[in-house]
Simulated assay, not measured.
Amino acid sequence: ILMRILVIEDERALAGFIEQTLRQHGFAASVAGTLAEARTLLTQPFDAVICDRRLPDGDGLDLVKELRAAGNHVPLLMLTALGLPKERVSGLEAGADDYLPKPFSLFELLARVKALLRRSGGPAGLLLELGNVQLDTLHETVQVAGKTVALGKREVVLLRHLLQRAGQVVGKDVLEQALYGDTDEKSRTALEVAIHRLRKMLTSVNASVNVVTVRGIGYLLEDTAK
């Protein structure tokens, strides 16, 4: 089960970048462009909320106050172009847990979301597991048969995407996008090299899973113990 993050942002391009970043790092993301859409979505549980201040139908702070008044203490990160200290203070006093002024780095936003989840204790459901392999998506740590193993960042990203769809084929384009985004690092062999490193690591620690190549389509992770 993936952690669910609600992104409340009316700038479509920015909302798309945030959503993509969250998904690439193992979260399930939903986007609302207005307070009305957010209120509808918030009838469902979320593990964290990212909310802009200035929205077409009101101030994001009003939603924060509503949530807190209703006893909803979901971790909440405010985004705003209003970067003055008094604006940040007003947001925190209204019940926001953190404040990030625009413009910001998507990596900083991701780090702040993870920090909020850690401080809140984080719900169950952060672990992806197949066979004797377990990946903590929040802390990005991997264990095999109960022992922590060291993986590079790209191998962790690959393993996370394969575990999320264990037993199903994950397309090459999906994995390449997760690893390299729109950078120039992509090549015909880059993904194959990363897959090779992941396979080598899994074999070296006697993992009971295997990365299977589905020629011309992608890869899938299978439990070899079954």
Rank of each mutant, 00 (worst) to 15 (best):
I1D: 13
I1N: 13
L2M: 14
A13W: 13
A15C: 06
F17P: 00
F17D: 14
E19T: 09
T21K: 15
R23A: 08
H25F: 12
G26R: 00
F27I: 03
A29V: 03
A29Q: 02
S30A: 15
V31S: 05
A32W: 01
G33F: 01
E37P: 10
A38E: 05
T40Q: 15
L42M: 15
L42R: 04
F46Q: 00
D47Q: 10
C51Q: 04
R54M: 13
D57W: 12
G60E: 01
G60Y: 06
D62K: 02
L63S: 03
L63D: 01
V64Y: 02
L67P: 03
R68D: 04
H73Q: 15
V74I: 14
L77S: 03
L82N: 12
P85K: 07
P85V: 04
E87F: 07
E87Q: 12
S90L: 09
S90T: 12
L92A: 10
A96Q: 03
A96I: 04
A96G: 07
D97N: 14
D98Y: 06
P101I: 03
P101M: 07
F104A: 09
L106F: 10
A111C: 10
A111S: 15
K114M: 08
L116C: 06
R118V: 14
S120F: 05
G121A: 09
G122E: 09
P123E: 12
L126V: 13
L128H: 11
E129H: 14
G131S: 07
N132G: 07
V133A: 04
V133Y: 00
T137S: 11
T137N: 00
H139E: 15
T141K: 15
V142Q: 09
V142E: 10
Q143N: 07
Q143S: 13
G146I: 08
G146S: 06
T148E: 14
A150H: 12
G152F: 03
K153W: 05
L159F: 01
R160E: 11
L163M: 09
L163T: 09
L163D: 10
L163H: 11
R165V: 01
A166W: 04
V169F: 02
K172D: 07
L175R: 04
L175N: 00
L175T: 04
E176H: 05
E176A: 13
Q177V: 08
Q177A: 14
A178I: 02
L179P: 02
Y180G: 05
G181A: 08
E185I: 05
T189V: 10
A190W: 06
E192W: 07
V205F: 03
V209Y: 02
N210M: 12
Y219C: 00
Y219I: 07
E222M: 11
A225Q: 13
K226T: 13
K226D: 05
